[in-house]
């Protein structure tokens, strides 16, 4: 799908839409409407999650889902409050996101509910609980 088609498809579900060229769409969605976006994408045969990025913005944590709509890349941002960053898993619709979500959990402390395998992936087993390396408050040694 081209950028314009993606925007058309998700009409009403996404805000702050920004297009760069005709192959990059940046948009945000609320935590509540976010599942509907996924379902619509899935219906249109979008199956490739390029990755999930987490960004600690100080006041909140942004989770950016990069969906490859071939050739357009949709970067869907969901902002989560820092005191309770919780979001539902997308692995039921996009199984390829499994490891990205495990990464998100251990690196930024985002709670991904209903994840099939919420163990650590990169961090060692004896890494202290509650220390999330990519959070702003963790200082580099």
């Amino acid at each position: 799908m081209k950028a314009s088609e993606v925007i058309q498809l998700l009409e009403g579900l996404i805000e702050e839409v920004k297009t760069v060229g005709n192959r990059r769409v940046f948009a945000t969605a609320s935590k509540e409407r976010f599942r509907e976006v996924l379902q619509r994408l899935r219906e249109k045969e979008v199956r490739h999650v390029s990755t999930i990025s987490g960004v600690d913005r100080g006041s909140h944590i942004s989770v950016v889902y990069h969906f490859d709509c071939r050739p357009c890349l949709l970067n869907l941002r969901v902002d989560l409050p820092k005191d309770n960053p919780e979001i539902r898993t997308i692995t039921d619709l996009f199984p390829g996101a499994e490891i990205y979500e495990r990464d998100l959990m251990e690196m930024l402390g985002v709670k991904v509910s209903e994840h099939p395998d919420p163990r650590r992936f990169f961090l060692p087993d004896d890494w202290p609980e509650g220390v999330y390396p990519l959070r702003k408050e963790v200082k580099q040694p």
Partner: peptide, 29 residues
């Protein structure tokens, strides 16, 4: 395979966040 960089800037000379998704990471599953 596909290599993806997501860069966020914040007005300074240093990036706010750089996310790297390497191809092998995408292929682990």
């Amino acid at each position: 395979g596909e290599l993806l960089y997501y860069v966020v800037s914040n007005g300074t000379d240093k990036p706010e966040r750089v996310r790297v998704r390497t191809p092998t990471y995408g292929n682990v599953l």
